[in-house]
Computed example of a mutant assay.
Amino acid sequence: MSSAKEVLFDNGRENKPEMKEERKDGEPTAAFKGASWGALIVGVTAYLIGLFNAGMQLNEKGYYFAVLVFGLYSAVSLQKAVRDKEEGIPVTGVYYGISWCALIIAISLMAIGLYNAGSIVLSEKGFYAMSFVLSIFSAITIQKNIRDTQVARERE
């Protein structure tokens, strides 16, 4: 009888045990981690390729790039602050408030910039908005995955 850590496979000649790494309780699956990283890479890459190919002036491209970087940072910072509070790790009210403010400002800057952009057609505006949202959401998910993995391994 094989243990829970062994997976037997048939290679046509004989069965050989293959060790499978066990996932800790509370740790996200490798598939979920991979999907989160994939979503971030797709979102950021699509956004940057769109900016590179856009017919905007360089200062406009810089604005949209800065908003993306600010949005990613503020989303990760907010997720960390929320998680710290939930786990009883001290978080000052000022930092917590600034984290919320920063994310709201980043999203507002993106929305206002796209609304006022006369040189961008509506389909491009939707493209930038969706790749921005995908990037923000996946950054939050990656931060959560990292934290969940860390907590699961510390319990060991």
Rank of each mutant, 00 (worst) to 15 (best):
Leu122Ile: 14
Lys144Asn: 13
Ser138Trp: 04
Gly43His: 03
Met56Ala: 06
Ala66Leu: 09
Val91Trp: 08
Ser138Lys: 03
Ala139Leu: 06
Glu14Cys: 00
Ala66Arg: 12
Asp84Trp: 07
Ser135Ile: 05
Ile107Leu: 10
Gly126Thr: 07
Ser123Ile: 13
Gln79Ile: 00
Ala66Asn: 15
Gly38Thr: 03
Thr92Glu: 13
Gly26Pro: 06
Lys16Gly: 03
Ile41Met: 04
Tyr95Asp: 15
Pro90Phe: 01
Ser36His: 01
Ile112Phe: 11
Val67Lys: 05
Tyr115Leu: 14
Val76Thr: 13
Ser135Pro: 10
Leu109Gln: 14
Phe127Lys: 02
Asn145His: 11
Ala39Arg: 10
Ala66Tyr: 04
Ala111Arg: 07
Ser138Met: 06
Ser119Phe: 15
Glu86Phe: 09
Ile49Ala: 10
Trp37Arg: 01
Phe70Cys: 00
Leu134Ala: 14
Gln57Tyr: 07
Leu103Cys: 03
Ser74Phe: 08
Val94Met: 11
Ile89Phe: 08
Met130Asp: 11
Ala54Phe: 03
Asn145Lys: 00
Gly113Arg: 05
Leu103Val: 13
Ala46Met: 12
Leu58Pro: 01
Val44Thr: 14
Asn15Leu: 15
Asn145Val: 01
Val133His: 00
Phe52Ala: 11
Ile136Gln: 04
Ser123Cys: 00
Arg83Cys: 00
Phe52Ser: 12
Leu103Gly: 01
Val69Lys: 13
Lys20Thr: 07
Ala54Asn: 05
Gly93Ser: 12
Met130Pro: 02
Asn59Ala: 10
Glu21Ser: 09
Trp100Tyr: 10
Asn15Arg: 15
Ile104Leu: 15
Pro28Phe: 05
Ala39Cys: 01
Ile104Thr: 11
Leu51Asp: 03
Lys85Ala: 15
Ser123Gln: 13
Lys24Phe: 14
Tyr47Leu: 06
Leu40Tyr: 10
Leu72Thr: 08
Leu68His: 05
Gly38Tyr: 01
Ala102Arg: 08
Leu114Val: 00
Ser119Met: 09
Ser138His: 06
Gly118His: 09
Ile142Val: 12
Ile98Ser: 08
Gln57Gly: 09
Asn145Tyr: 01
Gly113Met: 06
Glu60Arg: 11
Val76Ile: 15
Ile104Met: 12
Ala129Pro: 00
Glu21Gly: 01
Ser123Trp: 05
Val94His: 09
Leu68Tyr: 07
Tyr63Val: 04
Ser36Met: 03
Trp37Asn: 02
Phe137His: 11
Asn145Asp: 06
Gly34Ile: 02
Pro17Cys: 02
Met130Trp: 05
Met130Ser: 15
Leu114Tyr: 06
Gly50Gln: 04
Ser77His: 11
Tyr115Ile: 09
Gly43Ile: 02
Ile146Leu: 15
Gly43Asp: 05
Ser99Tyr: 04
Ala117His: 05
Phe52Gly: 03
Phe70Met: 10
Ala35Gly: 03
Ala30Ile: 13
Arg83Ser: 15
Ala46Lys: 10
Val69Asp: 13
Asn59Thr: 11
Met19Cys: 03
Val82Ser: 04
Ala54Arg: 01
Leu48Ala: 10
Val94Trp: 14
Ile41Asp: 08
Val42Cys: 00
Leu68Glu: 05
Tyr47Ile: 07
Ala39Glu: 13
Ile120Trp: 12
Met110Phe: 07
Tyr64Ser: 06
Met56Phe: 12
Tyr64His: 05
Gly93Ala: 09
Ile120Met: 15
Ala139Pro: 02
Gly50Lys: 03
Thr141Arg: 14
Tyr73Gln: 10
Gln79His: 09
Ile112Glu: 08
Val121Lys: 12
